[in-house]
Structures are given as C-alpha cells and as structure tokens.
C-alpha cells in the first residue's frame, strides 16, 4: 500500500512534467490523445500468443518520452510498479493453457507462458503510453482535448473540479489519518468503529467546503455556465503527427517488425 503523501507527491510530479516545453509539449493535446488511443488499440489487437511483434512498438513511448524530455528513470519506475499486477493477471494462463507452443532444442514452451509474457508486455506498453501522454500533455489539456473531441461540458468540468480538489482533500485525509495513527499507540489496524467517524467527518468537511466553493462561485457571478476560451491549435503539424504515427502502428501491426529485422540479421550472419 502506498502512503497517501507519497501518492500525492507522485501525482504532483507527473503533473509538473507537463509544464515542460518541448516539440511534443507544444503539440495540440488532441493529437497526443488520439495517437495514444491508436497506439493502445493497435497493441491490444494482437492475438494472445503474439510476443515478438510487440517489441518494435517500444519505438513510440521511447521516442515521445525522449522528445518530451521526460525523466526516463521515473517513467520506468512507474511502469515497473504496475508489472506485478500484470503478472498476477497473466499467471493463470500457464495453468490453463498447457499446449506446446514452440520447441527450441530441449526447451518446450507452452502457449500459456507465451500469452502470459504477452500480457506483461502489453501492460508495459499501454501503461507506459498513458503515463507518457499525461507527462507531455497535462491533465488540464487532456480534459480540454476531450471536450473538443465531443465530451459533454458537464463531465469535463467535473474532471477539472475533481482534479483540483484531489490535492486539497488528500492532504486533509492524510492529516486525519495521521492524527488517528498517532493516538492509536502503535496498534496497526484501523477498525471500522473509528474508520466510520473518521471518513464521516472528512465527508462533512468536504460537504461544507463544497458549499463555500459554491458561494465563491456565486459571488463572482456564476449562473450555471462555464466559459472558456481556447485557441485552436490543430494544424498540419498535428495532422502529420497523428497520421505519421498511425501509419507506423499499422505497418508494425501488419508486418512483424521484429521477425523482419531478425531475419535480416540472422540472414546476414549465416
């Protein structure tokens, strides 16, 4: 279990990355959201025994992260944290799928192991792409992109409000939980008897805060509509970005790039 403070710091760090300035950061958010979607769909569209053909797809997250100047170690650490979950999910495949898939000399590998490895690889790719997208775009821009791609205003406003107050409320929650911990004299667990009131108090304070925010909104003339001005930035550069990457993904989906490269090399060597 991650600590509350740790999670908030992590969130802030990813959020701060998006304030950077690079070729990728300057692209319209819609281009990055769409490209990431195409990427994820292509990656998961492979059949479950595909393993090697997934490797060439690393080109996308690696290039984006490099152009966006994201700290590689940080992104890798974030992805590694997710791998155990992927392993738990894929672990059952070797048990249920015991058919021989490939034999390399004395080695016989079952389909289950291949598909398990494939699941882990898919996780690394899709999770990595999502983190990197947030890191080079920022939540605010992602929301604006979603809105301009047709998401209802009510929902994007909700996303922005939620995101804004995560920082306030997680701190409040962390304070309450720390105060309880300090008075529980080393006993570890938090029983339901004290959890209920703790969360209840937090809920009531949250409610009162919502009322104050509403007051602050009314005081500044809020009448139920959110106004925003956005400059359209979807130009040729963005079109080229989306189309270019999509073309790469489609080619890599049709042709096993790893296979091709491997043949080239083994062919040259023999």
């Amino acid at each position: 279990m991650r600590s509350i403070d740790g999670a908030v710091l992590d969130l802030k760090r990813l959020d701060l990355l998006a304030t950077g300035d690079s070729v990728i950061h300057r692209l319209d958010a819609r281009a990055k959201v769409l490209t990431t979607l195409v990427f994820i769909v292509t990656v998961v569209s492979f059949n479950r025994y595909e393993f090697t053909a997934l490797f060439p797809f690393f080109i996308y997250p690696v290039v984006t992260a490099s152009l966006g100047n994201l700290p590689g170690g940080y992104i890798v650490r974030k992805i590694i944290m997710v791998i155990p979950f992927a392993f738990v999910v894929g672990m059952l495949n070797p048990i249920f799928d015991r058919e021989l898939f490939v034999r390399i000399g004395p080695l016989a590998i079952t389909g289950g192991w291949i598909s398990c490895a494939s699941i882990i690889l898919r996780t690394v790719l899709t999770v990595g792409a999502a983190f990197i997208m947030v890191g080079v775009t920022g939540f605010l821009s992602v929301c604006q992109a979603l809105e301009r791609l047709g998401t209802p205003r009510t929902f994007t406003v909700q996303l922005l409000f939620l995101y804004r107050y995560i920082f306030v409320l997680t701190e409040e929650g962390a304070r309450a939980s720390r105060a309880r911990e300090l008075r529980s004299c080393g006993r570890k667990g938090l029983g339901l008897a004290s959890f209920g009131p703790l969360i209840g108090h937090l809920l009531i304070r949250t409610w009162l805060r919502a009322e104050r925010i509403h007051m602050a909104m009314l005081a500044r003339g809020f009448i139920g509509e959110f106004h925003s001005h956005q400059v359209s930035g979807f130009g040729w550069r963005e079109l080229f970005y989306v189309a270019g990457w999509s073309a790469v993904f489609v080619v890599l989906r049709m042709e096993n790039g790893a296979q091709w490269m491997g043949r080239l090399v083994t062919g040259v060597l023999s």
Binding site: M1, R2, I4, A7, V157, Q158, L160, F161, L162, Y163, R164, Y165, I166, V168, L169, T170, E172, G173, A174, A176, S177, K188, G189, L190, G191, L192, F195, L198, I199, L202, L203, T206, W207, R209, A210, E211, I213, H214, M217, F222, I223, G224
Partner: peptide, 28 residues
C-alpha cells in the same frame, strides 16, 4: 436539474472518494 450547487459538490465528493480510498481499515 438546474441545481448549480451540485457542480462543486460533485467535484469535491469525487476528490473525497479519492482521498478516502487511500485510508485503509482492518476488515473485521
């Protein structure tokens, strides 16, 4: 529904759920 006080309420309650999910309790 035209109840504009729900706008901030939904937002902070979402954040509340986020915060509350990070506080663990012992299952009886």
């Amino acid at each position: 529904e035209l109840d504009d006080s729900k706008v901030p309420l939904m937002g902070v309650l979402g954040a509340f759920i986020f915060a509350a999910q990070m506080i663990n309790f012992t299952i009886p």
